Simulated scan of single mutants.
Amino acid sequence: MERTLGRQEASDAVGDEGWRLLLGTLRTSVRVGSLAEAAGVAARAVAVCGDDADGHLRVDLRPEQVVLSLQSLDRAALTARDVDLARRLTAAVRAAGLRTEPGVGTGASRSVQVLEIAVDALDIPAIRPFWAAVLGYAGEAGADGPADPLVDPAGEGPAFWFQQMDRPRPQRNRIHFDICVPHDEAPGRLEAALAAGGRLLSADRAPAFWVLADPEGNEACITTWQGRDG
């Protein structure tokens, strides 16, 4: 069985290759000029991964970009195999005259990111089945306990996770967004949110997360993988 990697180790291993660590996955973007070129990149990626493709690789194709994601899906974790595949994919993309890079969108308007929706709960096992049913979601392989997050089996919608509360807090919204960004993207995203009228409510757990609010008090968190070990 492949060795599971810590966050710092995984990030350091492929950061210089244009990959970023987001919620237990390695992600990168390849800018292309057409959907046909995107399909070619995807086909090359599948070929490079070979028999490991189904168990590790996920691909999102658009006319302007391809987003590649790697994770050992049977464990919902990163392993040494994922790092090896990331390096091989970067080499293959470069051989095609393209680049793996963290920026996505036209003109690399933002970085790769992952959106989560967090739900405050006093009794997580009691409410989790409802959200699984109404969303058509399920737990991840190796992480499907009564308090674990829920994910879209089709890989289209944002993840849902449940924040344990010790008492009701009716004075605040009980559902908020978590935007998981690359660690080197977080300062710029924070600055942009504040410049757009946001307020910083807490940086006590930074760089793991910053708690922000819009002008009416609705909350969102900018999160990274950093500050979560030890």
Rank of each mutant, 00 (worst) to 15 (best):
M1P: 12
G6S: 06
Q8D: 06
E17Q: 11
E17W: 04
G18F: 10
R27W: 09
V30D: 00
S34F: 02
E37P: 02
E37A: 01
A39E: 11
V41I: 01
A47M: 02
V48C: 02
A53H: 03
L57K: 05
R58P: 08
R62H: 05
P63S: 01
Q65L: 06
V66C: 03
V67T: 03
L68G: 03
L73T: 05
R75S: 09
A76P: 00
A77G: 08
A77Y: 04
T79L: 10
T79F: 14
T79P: 11
D84Y: 08
D84F: 03
R88Q: 13
R94N: 03
L98I: 05
R99Y: 02
P102I: 15
V104G: 12
G107A: 13
S111K: 07
Q113P: 06
Q113I: 15
L115I: 03
A121Q: 10
I124E: 03
P125N: 09
P125K: 01
P129M: 07
F130Q: 10
F130M: 14
W131I: 08
A132G: 08
A133Y: 08
A133D: 13
P149K: 00
P149A: 05
P153W: 15
Q164F: 15
R172A: 07
R174P: 01
F177T: 06
I179M: 09
C180R: 06
P182R: 03
R189G: 15
A192M: 10
A192D: 00
L194V: 03
A196G: 01
G197F: 15
G197H: 11
L200M: 05
A208H: 15
W210Q: 09
E216K: 13
N218Y: 05
Q226M: 15
